[in-house]
Amino acid sequence: MSDALAFDSSTDLASLGRSLGEASRGDAGVIVSVTGQTGAAEAVEADELERRLLEMGFVEGAHVEVLHEGLFGRDPIAVRLDDTRVALRRREASAVTVKFDRTPT
């Protein structure tokens, strides 16, 4: 548990992590920042996406692990998010930065 990281979204912590959008199966870690910025043309505003992610439980300090990847382009992904399972597209996942503590062998 990295309680010290919880709910802190300062940029220096964010720079420690990698985007969830690029993670592979088995990657696990703690969310360090949620921004709503996906880097692609947005269908909804960044602020709106950020709030949706937060409401689904993608919040700084939450544990994520990539459980499954889709067949085509390894998209979408299914993640364990604390004690729930959530499916999302890589595009939205890229708004979430994670400090991974374990990567697949």
Partner: peptide, 13 residues
């Protein structure tokens, strides 16, 4: 021709 909407869904037990 529009953009793609975000998609997130819980996978129930």
């Amino acid at each position: 021709r529009g953009t793609v909407e975000p998609f997130m869904m819980e996978l129930p037990t």
